[in-house]
Design a protein around this nucleic acid. Structure first.
Lengths: 116, 116
DNA sequence: TATACTTAGTTACATAAAGTAACAAATTAA
DNA sequence: TTAATTTGTTACTTTATGTAACTAAGTATA
């Protein structure tokens, strides 16, 4: 069990986007370049995994890492053109979530909110 | 480390799509309803994980499971409206992969193909 | 000078998810 | 009776992710 008949480029794209946190990191950087700590607290990812993910994404050419030797040093992550070109995908997902995901998931039993 | 400032509906959508195999299973069913074995061999997923995924996706209302008591029995999986509504997302990813993923990944050194 | 604080991570360890291979139940075919 | 097919399941291994403590470099504070 290892063959597929799918287009390898499509498979690759899907595997990038289905890495946990990758989509959220890109989404976060759509607004502006971000520092490590900002990304971490915005999306709630651990330092270890964020560190791994940023390295992967740099490797894949989605993200650029800039060092500003201010004092203290500032390290800023931003999207490359390739990374930014995923914006439509993220916006589609955002729109879909508004259209199809109910405001509260059914296992949160907060009766002060109406359910779909 | 567990808070995020993101919209929970968007987070939910991203978590669905970043489950490994989910996007490929949906993509596969865009063409037509499919049987278990067909999905398995089309995308190269193990029986165990496909079984888990289809249950998850049924639970999430993305996929419908129909039993046709022919002999032998036929079990067919198809997309619900909610599942099908992800088509634009998948098509965007497909398009993006054609625009931005090179034909061969750089670690496959097949020199009979030209590289980007 | 010693202590504490901040940023950008890393390390060691624990838990969860995914992969592999063998197996099972139901039915049909040889 | 034996084998084959379909739709899974079970037991076990490997990989990915999460948690918490720690580090290094620089700055500020007492």
């Amino acid at each position: 069990m290892k063959q597929s008949t799918l287009c390898p480029r499509f498979e690759k794209a899907v595997s990038l986007l289905s890495q946990r946190w990758t989509a959220l990191v890109i989404y976060q950087m759509l607004d502006a370049p971000q520092r490590f700590g900002a990304i971490q607290s915005a999306i709630g990812v651990s330092g270890k995994v964020l560190s791994d993910r940023l390295k992967d994404m740099e490797q894949e050419g989605l993200v650029k890492r800039d060092v500003y030797p201010e004092t203290p040093v500032i390290i800023e992550y931003s999207l490359t053109d390739k990374g930014r070109s995923l914006e439509p995908v993220l916006r589609d997902i955002e729109q879909w979530s508004q259209d199809w995901i109910p405001p509260k998931t059914s296992d949160e039993t907060d009766l002060t909110e109406s359910h779909q």
